[in-house]
Amino acid sequence: MTIQPLRVVQWATGTVGQAALRHFIGNPHFQPVGVLVTNPDKVGRDAGELVGLPAIGLAATDDVEAILALDADCVHFAPLLPDVDTVCRLLRSGKNVVSPLGPVYASEPFRADVEKIEAACREGGVSFHGTGIHPGFIGDILPLTLTRLSDRIDRIQVFEIADKLKTPSVYIEYMGFGLSPDELAARPNCMTGAMHAFAQSMAFVVEGLGKRIGDVTERHEIALATHDIAYEGGVICAGTVAGQHWEWTALVDGAPFLVYHLYYRMGEDMTPAWNLGESRHRILVEGAPSFELTLAASPEADGHLPFLGITWTALLGATAIPAVCAAAPGFVTHMDLGIVKPLGLARA
């Protein structure tokens, strides 16, 4: 039986967008029909060329109206910043949307956005799914799935540990690395209010277990560079921020139940020395029985262990597209999708 390829649009070609576009080009179950770019230097370039592949005969555009007018099954929407209004325009145009920017769950701070998205889905007869590695997978559907191995759960801890010196990204600047502690405290950055985004995943897990979150607390620790640290985007000067630990705790029945740890750092030469080891994700379930799961990249040929957060963010969205296109119209979460069955992964 021949399955008609899904016609997809890649919206934005940053690091996440490039990884998704590369998947769409290589997977026979997808047919890229549009690429939206915001960098003028990319306009008119072939989609394949943008991701280091042979040309496929599809030129990138910055014309939003042209993208809206396309006959497409789904848009993988991956700009740098959320844009619910544009998402709703895409949905009303009859295109399903999958986005690593979320929202991923209708927790209270995002309820209004979810309601707008639901209304646009009904108008367009399509669905929306928010996903990503974290929020969107490592802190919600994965730990909730692991709870089936439990008789009783006292606490769940989720760790994201990333050495951005080994795998540089725009988040080095956007998170305020290289600032003094006072500058970091005074300037809003991409982590300002991040607790609410991650609390979506917390609500997903806790409500999936039949409980409700009473409150979420936040703690932020920093570590300072012990000497100048050069990276491809500049220098983290000695005495400036080289490590950040964000900790969010969801209280259930008055006790800490779900704790997220986000450790981002620029190498190990900092004080205090956290000695975190290689980049990885880790889930620790404490109870009866207690157990843990570690998710990390395999070593590359040169022994390098990359942090695959960006790649996994793209692929979690891309591989969900067939299920989202097949879903009933509306805002769909992991609960609604059930077990996602990706297409085209087993190929030469």
Results as ranks from 00 to 15, higher is better:
Q4F: 00
H29M: 05
F30R: 03
G34N: 01
N39G: 03
N39K: 14
P40K: 07
K42L: 12
G44C: 10
R45Y: 01
D46N: 06
V51I: 04
P54C: 09
G57F: 08
D62Q: 15
D63G: 03
V64H: 14
F77R: 04
L81A: 12
D83V: 07
D83W: 06
V84E: 08
L90C: 12
N96Q: 07
N96S: 10
P100S: 15
V104F: 14
F110R: 06
R111G: 05
R111P: 01
K116V: 02
A120P: 08
G125D: 08
G132F: 15
I133W: 14
H134V: 13
G139T: 09
D151S: 12
V158P: 01
I161D: 13
A162W: 15
K164W: 15
K166P: 03
V170I: 11
G176P: 01
F177P: 04
E183M: 13
P188T: 14
P188H: 13
C190I: 15
M195H: 09
Q200P: 07
M202W: 13
A203S: 12
V206R: 11
G208R: 07
K211L: 14
D215Y: 01
V216L: 13
T217P: 05
E218P: 00
H220R: 14
I222N: 06
I222F: 11
A223G: 14
A223H: 10
V235Y: 12
I236C: 12
T240C: 11
H245V: 08
E247W: 02
T249V: 15
V259L: 07
M266L: 15
D269R: 11
D269E: 15
P272M: 11
A273T: 09
L284K: 11
S290I: 01
F291H: 01
P299D: 01
G303H: 02
P306W: 03
L308I: 01
A314D: 05
G317A: 05
A320N: 03
V324F: 03
V324Q: 03
A326P: 00
P329C: 04
V332T: 05
T333R: 12
H334I: 03
D336V: 10
P342A: 02
L345R: 12
